[in-house]
Nucleic acid binder design. Structure first.
Length: 189
DNA sequence: ACACGGATACTA
DNA sequence: AGTATCCGTGTC
């Protein structure tokens, strides 16, 4: 049985967590994939974090634990998956792209796409492929058999960083991280 | 290039 | 109520 990361893993600074999650396998039900792209958002000093202008996000941080998922609807169209980081520093890690490993048939069905590279190469695509939506908002990634993030580092490689995608504030922070050369990254903007 | 589409937080 | 904004994707 696969061992999943415990809550303590999500108690470091969001930037450290965002980097450390790369190369580990996200398991959700019958589907899974290796995390190849993430972004960090910090409650402190980061105007791009939802806590900056959303009371709901601040309430979420106050009432949830490290390792709980923060899932929200963006542009009225796509759900996005974040993990709550909570320790000495607080924030979120947005999971932006994964390399599909198991449950490919289910992903293809949900995504209505055949090419593996098109199944989970973006934060909205991940939630479609894994069937994630508001139902799971606040659910935990720790202490369960059916979902979690594997402890084992199954992909190693050079970690590159750059500005986060699709935001209007906090553009100066290079808090997007990805495994260089992976064919499963989200499209560059 | 542009349409799609709803939750959230603001003004009044 | 009305308005602005928002961590994207697919198709034009």
């Amino acid at each position: 049985m696969k061992r999943f990361l415990e809550r303590e893993f999500f108690e470091e600074h969001p930037v450290d967590c965002a980097r450390a999650l790369l190369g580990r396998e996200l398991v959700w039900g019958k589907c899974s994939g290796i995390i190849v792209e993430t972004e960090a958002y910090a409650v402190e000093g980061d105007p791009a974090c939802h806590t900056f202008n959303r009371k709901g996000a601040r309430d979420f941080v106050a009432s949830h634990s490290a390792g709980d998922v923060y899932i929200y609807l963006n542009y009225g169209v796509y759900w996005l998956l974040n993990v709550l980081i909570k320790g000495n520093d607080e924030g979120f890690v947005l999971i932006r792209a994964i390399e599909p490993t198991y449950g490919l048939a289910l992903m293809r069905q949900r995504r209505k796409r055949e090419k593996v590279e098109e199944l989970c190469s973006g934060p909205g695509k991940i939630c479609m492929a894994l069937d994630l939506d508001g139902r799971y908002h606040g659910a935990s990634l720790c202490g369960l058999k059916s979902r979690g993030i594997g402890m084992e580092l199954v992909r190693r490689g050079e970690i590159h960083s750059g500005p986060r995608v699709g935001i209007s504030r906090g553009k100066e922070l290079a808090w997007r991280f990805y495994l260089a050369g992976s064919p499963f990254l989200s499209p560059r903007k």
